[in-house]
C-alpha cells in the first residue's frame, strides 16, 4: 500500500513543483490553486505512506535514508501550509515547496538502509531527535524563504522597480515578521533536537563518534545559527543582514545535508557494532 501511495504522490509532486515554479513567473491565482491542490494531494499521499510505516511499528523507518528525505519533505510541507494559512504569502510556496518536492524526488533514487534498533528508549530518543531537527530545519527554511522575499522587496524599493508596488510580494514588515518568527522559533527546537542526538550518540555509539562528519557539520550549522541568533538578539544584526545571514545559513545547511547523507553516523555505527540492516519501503 505504501508503495502505491508513494508512486501516486510523485505525479502530484511533479505538477506542484512545476506549478509553483511557474507561479513565480506568471503570478496567476489559477496557477497557485493548481499548485496548492497538487501539493495537498502530494502531502496526503505522503502522510499515508509515513503513517503506515510508523503504525506498523517499524520505528527504523523513521531514520532510514529514504524515509529521512520523505519526513523532511513532509515537515517542510506542514510548515509551509501553516505559514500560508497564517500569513497568506503565496510566494513562500514558490521557494519552500520546490525544496520539499525535490527532496521527495531525490528519495526515489535512495535506498532505505536502516539500522536495527536495539533499545526502545533509544528508538524514542532517535524519533524525537529527528523530529525536532526536521522541525527546526523546516522553520529555518521558512525564515530563508521570507529572507529571500525580503531582499527582493528591499531591492525593488531601493531600485525603484515596479515590483516594489506588487502586492503579491508582501510589505517589508510582514516579511520581517515571518522571517523573525521562523528564525526565533527554529533555533530552540533545533538546539533541543541536536542535544538529544548528541546524548543518544554518546550513549550508544562507539568511541570516536564525535568526529563523525554528521556531528561536525551539525554542530557547525548550529554554531552559525546561534551566532546569527545572538547577534540579532543583541541588536547588532539589522534586517537586511539577518536576511543575508539566513541565506548563507541555508546554503550551509543544504551543503552539509548532502555531504553527510551518505556518510551517516548510523552507517558508521553499523560498521562498528551491528552489521544488521533492514530494507524499508
Amino acid at each position: 500500500m505504501t508503495i502505491f501511495f508513494f508512486k501516486t504522490s510523485l505525479p502530484f509532486a511533479a505538477i506542484a513543483l512545476f506549478a509553483f515554479i511557474y507561479y513565480t513567473y506568471r503570478r496567476q491565482r489559477e496557477i497557485f490553486i493548481v499548485a496548492t491542490i497538487a501539493s495537498v494531494l502530494t502531502f496526503c499521499c505522503l502522510t499515508i505512506v509515513l503513517s503506515s510505516n510508523i503504525l506498523t511499528g517499524n520505528v527504523g523507518a523513521y531514520v532510514g535514508e529514504k524515509s529521512r528525505y520523505l519526513h523532511f519533505a513532509w515537515t517542510i510541507m506542514v510548515i509551509y501550509f501553516l505559514a500560508e494559512f497564517h500569513y497568506k504569502i503565496r510566494l513562500l510556496g514558490s521557494i519552500l515547496m520546490p525544496i520539499a518536492l525535490t527532496l521527495m524526488l531525490i528519495s526515489m533514487f535512495t535506498d532505505n538502509q536502516v539500522p536495527a534498533q536495539s533499545l526502545p528508549l533509544g528508538a524514542v530518543i532517535t524519533f524525537t531527535h529527528v523530529a525536532l531537527v526536521f522541525i527546526g530545519l523546516g522553520l529555518m527554511l521558512l525564515a530563508f524563504a521570507a529572507a529571500v522575499l525580503y531582499l527582493l522587496k528591499t531591492n525593488a524599493l531601493k531600485k525603484h522597480l515596479l515590483s516594489a508596488l506588487d502586492e503579491r510580494l508582501p510589505s517589508l514588515p510582514m516579511l520581517r515578521r515571518v522571517m523573525e518568527s521562523a528564525f526565533y522559533g527554529g533555533f530552540p527546537v533545533l538546539t533541543i533536537g541536536l542535544i538529544l542526538g548528541v546524548v543518544y550518540a554518546a550513549s550508544v555509539l562507539a568511541a570516536g563518534w564525535i568526529w563523525d562528519a554528521k556531528i561536525i557539520w551539525g554542530i557547525a550549522n548550529w554554531l552559525l545559527y546561534s551566532i546569527l541568533f545572538f547577534l540579532r538578539q543583541s541588536g547588532r544584526l539589522g534586517n537586511q543582514f539577518l536576511a543575508r545571514g539566513l541565506i548563507l545559513l541555508f546554503l550551509f545547511v543544504i551543503t552539509s545535508f548532502f555531504f553527510t547523507t551518505h556518510e551517516s553516523i548510523l552507517d558508521k555505527s553499523n560498521m562498528n557494532r551491528t552489521p544488521i540492516t533492514t530494507e524499508v519501503e
Binding site: 522587496k153 524599493l157 516594489a164 508596488l165 510589505s171 517589508l172 514588515p173 510582514m174
Partner: peptide, 20 residues
C-alpha cells in the same frame, strides 16, 4: 492593477514599506 497617479503610488509605496 497598478495606479496611474503619482500620489496614489506614493501611498502604495509607503504601505509596502510600513504595511499600515
Amino acid at each position: 492593477h497598478g495606479s496611474v497617479s503619482v500620489s496614489t503610488i506614493a501611498v502604495q509605496l509607503a504601505r509596502n514599506i510600513f504595511e499600515d
